[in-house]
Design a binder for these strands. Sequence first.
DNA 1: CTGAAAGCGCTTACAG
DNA 2: CTGAAAGCGCTTACAG
Lengths: 343, 343
Amino acid sequence: MARLAGVSTATVSRALRGLPTVSAATRRRVLAAAEQLDYEVSPSASRLAGGRTGTVAVVVPRITRWFFSTVVEAVEEYLHDSGYDLLLYNLGGREQVRQRVLRTANLHKRVDAIMLVATPLRPADLTALASLDLPGVTISSGSRVPRWPCVRIDDVAAARTATRHLLDLGHQRIAHISGDPDDELAFTTHLDRRRGYQAELRAAGLRPDPSLDVESTFTIDGGNRATAELLARGGPPPTAIVAACDEMAMGALTALRDAGLRVPQDVSVIGIDDHDLAGVLGLSTVTQPAAEQGRLAARILLDPLGARTLGPVVGQRGADGDTPVILPTRLVVRDSTAPPRAH
Amino acid sequence: MARLAGVSTATVSRALRGLPTVSAATRRRVLAAAEQLDYEVSPSASRLAGGRTGTVAVVVPRITRWFFSTVVEAVEEYLHDSGYDLLLYNLGGREQVRQRVLRTANLHKRVDAIMLVATPLRPADLTALASLDLPGVTISSGSRVPRWPCVRIDDVAAARTATRHLLDLGHQRIAHISGDPDDELAFTTHLDRRRGYQAELRAAGLRPDPSLDVESTFTIDGGNRATAELLARGGPPPTAIVAACDEMAMGALTALRDAGLRVPQDVSVIGIDDHDLAGVLGLSTVTQPAAEQGRLAARILLDPLGARTLGPVVGQRGADGDTPVILPTRLVVRDSTAPPRAH
DNA sequence: CTGAAAGCGCTTACAG
DNA sequence: CTGAAAGCGCTTACAG
């Protein structure tokens, strides 16, 4: 290869990487030789010699869930367009894996940067991450990592918007179904969203009623069970439900149907997320920009690495690694919310 | 490290990789030293020296779709449990990316094996893949690659089962909505499923009616549009619809709702897949084991690589790379199918 | 069972 | 702008 082009391997290396210190004529010759020989550099060799891997680890709780697959799709596009590879880690709730991934071992010299999507960390994880000494970014809730930027929405505000919508329709008995405190995949998200629900009730002069607040898992099935429990508690049923995420709202829909209650005539339901299928189900929700969070986080992550990025991160506060970048949410009214029936 | 353990680097290498040619005492000493020094091998260096990457490329059309995210989740678990990394490539319908991924360049020396999920290939792609000379496996439809095993379902049979169900209920005017012939993400899948639909009609003595057969994209929106077109064609509407996949069936549900038609009273709808949300929507469908296809394909792929696998591939025909491994499908009746109304 | 030596295929200072 | 040399940190025959 170097011989065919009549230059040294060092020059081949420079020419192929597009370094500016190569004359146009030389570059042409090298490129032509590479073409002719179908030459491709060995990633392992250049990683070893150069100390960079051109790879980013992306950690998600569950790739099968709407938010995470949407984020990963956007991130994948941005990374590959920037010449980076994406190493996928799906925690899948398996504690072992979580440890293996987050502890030094598996990431050591394997990636140039880390993206953590909604991944809660314990102190030991944070220590391990710090010892890797890699740049990183977090998306959504989960833990903040010192010095890593964070892209997310305001979960408290999103829940307030959802609750406000029901209050505006005239509802008073507004229930809330949310994540299990033991469900490490939900973590801060459901706490923030519950806080928003309660804050908005209080702002309307209502007192949050513990009997209208049920915890379950952050899944369709969890929403189903939480709603069933809500109905089984006796007393007058709620006229509306704020689900902590669309998947739980979907579970609520089935539980209400099974109980013979109509949505929205008997009970209104609103979620948070704007899941792909929210439209199909006619689910009112508070939409959050999942793909955009992924894209933005990828850009913030790669920019300092000198990637061949697609554009500068302009006017984005929070890229300093301290203030989170907050993306906006918005109420989307569909068919699952309506005024309560007149008595 | 080698010094601390009092052995050569070669022995360290052997001990850490668990080669049998190391005495127990030596191994103990090496392990202790590694522990003490927090030593981790450099992947780049061992890849360069050893010629293996410990990485598998997984190519999917769209990670955001149910089938693909489910497959990837299962594959990820199997790969990581076997000590392999997963490099994710999401085609996302972008032709450029597709070329970059499948042509030699990007995969060269980057992975030990390739998994193609429902990825249609053109002759040039096949040539490029062959020149990489890597082991691989394909899942679902898309193209077969010579000598690569294939794990899939029988799409023709699945569509026959769905159609049979409607026939059994007494339907005669059974429509079909399926993929666009130009939609490369659907490719053979929708052709096979249409073939099954038509075959089953014929087996029942009915003639497939072209005016009841609409092509669109393999998505919710595609199902919506196809159904709207079906209804706009005039003439007596169908009493039942076989959708080529659950996502299209969901679109059909919304289109029927928008047209003021009730499911299943006015029109029955059945899909194929058993999407996560099929249950929530009460959608009858023919279920296919997505996670199992992923797991099995991963196993077939890794087994010959001498990975520390979780078990032998026993009794699986087709692992020879010629006969596809066909996994079973099964009818799941929910609320979206019922007998046609009496005239 | 273990070590010395060579080599994997690049990139990086360092000269010029 | 380009080359010679060293080195990245492992693994692999080859001896013993």
